[in-house]
Write a protein that binds this DNA or RNA. Structure first.
Lengths: 149, 149
DNA sequence: AAAGTAAGTTTACCATTGTAAACGAATTAT
DNA sequence: ATAATTCGTTTACAATGGTAAACTTACTTT
């Protein structure tokens, strides 16, 4: 089994569809339509177009089951989320990553279990922590360089 | 002084420009051009277009200084990053937020100080932690509902 | 004052995305 | 078998975004 590379960008509208697929594992267009017609107030047409595009991009698989298709995801939600999350960290200086994670934590409701888990992860991270994170930015795109003279 | 609302979406290309503005506080188009011509391999034209669009959107301010403009940001980097980060959490079930933060932490290099800071934040979060985070998804877009029967 | 140059504005153009109607084939109901 | 329904495909069209040339002003240099 080969791991497939998906550089494919999943757009907002497509993501809505993917969530239905991920949540239900194997879905028909009918299922997707019923869920999203309500939430998004899209016509059937719109949803069919998006399904078609996702299949075209290889993000969704189809298997014939009788006359209709069963759609399944070719990429896991976790993986897609990770990729998407990465976008934000590509927009900032490496040195700020810690702060951003900090504000993300501040901005969201967590459960006690979540906090425990995060604490454990942080504990482990200590083994790999550095004294100072390296700045990756080209000169002129972050303030770090200013301190070098 | 009023806090301005920016629902404005900052695109990838625009973000490159914003980083230069944020890093240098008050910049001329010349400065932006010199930084990005290298990094992005864009022509002057392209950069001028983006500057113009950002001014149009109200994300950048201009002051005349003699014949040229000085561009300044109307929105702080921290705020913009926060907004952008929010996008990802709008794409997932609230219940998964903790896990996503977990993988974000795993995926990035942190300094000892970062870890300390995050630990403190988590410590504080305990006062507001919940037993179980509420799912916000419409039925059919996450698995949570499946467990309700 | 004339010519050259730097800076901002207008136009342009194509790809992607959101949104959806129309079409065609297959299936089921009458 | 015929009509109605269902499901996927094709076509469409406007808005956004990436990329850039052309144009216009207003300085600056000679």
């Amino acid at each position: 089994m080969s791991t497939i590379e998906f550089n494919t960008h999943i757009t907002d509208a497509e993501w809505e569809v993917m969530r239905v697929v991920w949540a239900n594992d194997r879905v028909t267009s009918k299922k997707v339509i019923s869920v999203l017609q309500e939430k998004m107030d899209w016509t059937q047409s719109t949803i069919k177009t998006i399904l078609g595009r996702l299949v075209g991009k290889g993000v969704l698989n189809t298997e014939h089951e009788g006359r209709k298709f069963i759609y399944t995801a070719n990429i896991e939600e976790t993986e897609a989320v990770r990729d998407y999350a990465e976008d934000i960290f590509n927009r900032i200086c490496n040195k700020k990553v810690g702060n951003v994670i900090g504000s993300i934590i501040e901005d969201h409701v967590l459960s006690f279990d979540d906090i425990d888990r995060l604490e454990k992860i942080l504990e482990m991270k200590k083994s790999f922590a550095v004294e100072e994170v390296d700045c990756n930015c080209p000169e002129g795109q972050c303030e770090c360089h200013l301190h070098h003279h």
